[in-house]
Amino acid sequence: MPSSGQIFPSSFRGGAREGFITFLPLSVGLVPWALVMGMAMASTGFTPLQAMGMNIIVFAGTAQLGTLPLIAAEAPLWLIVVTALALNLRFVIFSAALAPGFRGVGTAKRWLAGHLLTDGVFATCLDKMLHTDDPHWRLGYYLAPAVWSWLLWQVFALIGIYAAGFIPKQWSLEFMATIALIVLLVPMARVRPMLIAALVGGASATLLRNMPLRLGVVVAICAGIAAGFAAEHREHKARQS
């Protein structure tokens, strides 16, 4: 079809094929996540429609899992939004790193690419995005893994939502969301300053849990960032002297 050839030039398809093949083995890791996400949303009390609505509108695992307990506790709206923002701020850095790879790509496609950005897609695509000249090839290489991730995320979350209905309440399935957050945290905390940021953030949030409007969470996040940054600074100085 010549018309589809214009929307997706052959170099786009070439890039898409290569991106997909590179990403496919990694993408298996999304399956347990999406299942847990679906079960966690269902055990928070969302209807399947609400749960899929969140999954499609938000499309960000960490921010979804992290805001669920706040939504369940009827925390104030601004706190929920600030928490989601804090959990996804790392993407500002990823986005800045990938930006040169989108030269020659239109604004609408850039918004789509931005919405579909995930940790896995970033890790897979960064190198090729920065070292390939053809903008169609680059876009294909990025969008194929991104769209595949989106599909896996929606399909397996939906399975998780319905699977949760068959599991008795006393199994405390919602605790799987906490385990999921721990699984995300553990590899981050392998670097010392990051571990310090997590320890200070966790300890502050626990100590400040009775602050009004759950303000303690925000204060704890800021304290954690400051502590991590200070620790990095100290290590840097120690290495220089």
């Binding site: 992290g66 790392r90 800045a96 930006a99 905390a189 990095e232």
Partner: peptide, 29 residues
């Protein structure tokens, strides 16, 4: 930045500080 392109740059200090936001936020929850 994907949408804005390379017209704007994030200050380096801010980039480094922001790296700690997810770990701090996850632990705080």
């Amino acid at each position: 930045f994907i949408v804005l392109g390379s017209r704007v740059a994030l200050p380096l200090v801010l980039q480094r500080a922001l790296r700690y936001a997810p770990a701090a936020a996850l632990a705080a929850i």
